[in-house]
């Protein structure tokens, strides 16, 4: 049973101790709460910040301490209000006027003082990897976009294959360019290892066991083909760094021991490039890449096979459960 009297639970102050806002800004105004620049009017950026904040605070909704729980509810409401106000042009206008007055600043000069940050036109979408599938990350001109396992990175990826800062994308001469943080780090674009690459819409970037698709905001290509999203779940076998691997259609990725395999299984029973998994029309299929120990689907040795929901794919000593969610 939880009760603050019984256990050694401490009361948290959500704004400072969970969201990490400076104490002198609490309670924060909407922009500070969301961590976007003052008077930001970029709809997508506000929505993204709302989702991020809401997910963070929500994890504490069941805190054993009642006072914390109640404070967390208030902050969840506050994030929701921020979304309501900042995404409704009429409400935002009157809020901005009132806020400028309260802070004693002039809105026009604040906006012109801010770095000219044009509306971002490009995004990186996570299309394969253990988690984060479907997430869209905006690339903002003038700001470097870093990818790695360090929590300061713009895109935080986990897993043993990701370095602290693994890769950086930046805007130069009208193009987005991506490169690994140093020569030790491997990134691939469209299946080829690269040291620097100028991105074009539709390019696929493999970094630290994740695959990202580069695309423009306007065209909004839907990465989802007609096949359902695929989850490959480690069912039997020794513990691996990434027990689950997800992918959206239309994808093609290699499973193997190699550094360059998108789902890397470091085990002697797995070949360097063991098999390839890809969508064909509305189905996912697996093909053996001349591996030493072969590929089995539901215990039957195959060279190439269509994968169905709940199939068991056997690679070396691993049994992998296929989950297709229509």
């Amino acid at each position: 049973m939880t009760d603050s009297d019984d256990q050694n639970v401490t009361t948290l102050r959500p704004y400072t101790e969970i969201l990490g806002l400076p104490a002198d800004q609490c309670p924060p105004h909407h922009y500070s709460l969301l961590g976007v620049e003052l008077f930001c009017s970029h709809f997508e950026r506000i929505n993204q910040a709302v989702r991020k904040r809401y997910r963070t605070i929500r994890e504490y909704h069941d805190h054993p301490d009642r006072k914390t729980r109640e404070a967390v509810q208030d902050v969840m409401n506050a994030v929701a209000i921020a979304r309501v106000v900042l995404t409704d042009p009429a409400r935002k206008e009157s809020y901005d006027i009132e806020l400028a007055h309260r802070l004693g600043v002039d809105r026009e000069s604040v906006l012109s003082d801010q770095l000219a940050s044009p509306i971002p036109e490009c995004q990186l979408i996570v299309v394969a990897g253990p988690r984060l599938i479907g997430q869209r990350h905006e690339l903002v001109e003038g700001t470097d976009f870093t990818i790695g396992s360090n929590s300061n990175c713009s895109l935080l990826i986990d897993g043993s294959r990701a370095a602290d800062v693994h890769a950086t994308a930046w805007f130069t001469d009208g193009d987005w360019v991506i490169k690994p943080a140093d020569r030790e780090k491997i990134i691939q674009v469209n299946g080829t290892t690269t040291l620097e690459f100028v991105l074009a819409p539709g390019d696929l970037v493999d970094v630290g066991g994740y695959r990202l698709m580069f695309c423009g905001v306007q065209e909004k290509p839907d990465p989802r083909g007609s096949a359902p999203p695929l989850s490959m779940i480690m069912h039997k076998g020794i513990s691996v760094a990434m027990p689950v691997f997800n992918a959206l259609p239309s994808q093609r990725f290699v499973v193997g021991q190699s550094e360059t395999a998108l789902w890397q299984l470091s085990d002697p029973t797995i070949s360097r490039h063991h098999c390839v998994v890809r969508t064909v029309g509305d189905a996912w299929e697996v093909e053996d890449m001349e591996s030493t120990n072969g590929v089995q689907v539901n215990g039957v040795e195959v060279l190439r096979a269509v994968l169905a929901d709940r199939d068991i794919l056997t690679l070396g000593q691993f049994d992998i459960l296929i989950s297709l969610r229509y």
């Binding site: 709302v50 989702r51 809401y54 997910r55 409401n77 506050a78 929701a80 209000i81 979304r83």
Partner: peptide, 13 residues
């Protein structure tokens, strides 16, 4: 409006 927005965000997530 904030309560309704929370319902909406939960469904979206």
């Amino acid at each position: 409006a904030d309560l309704l927005t929370r319902l909406q965000m939960t469904v979206e997530m």
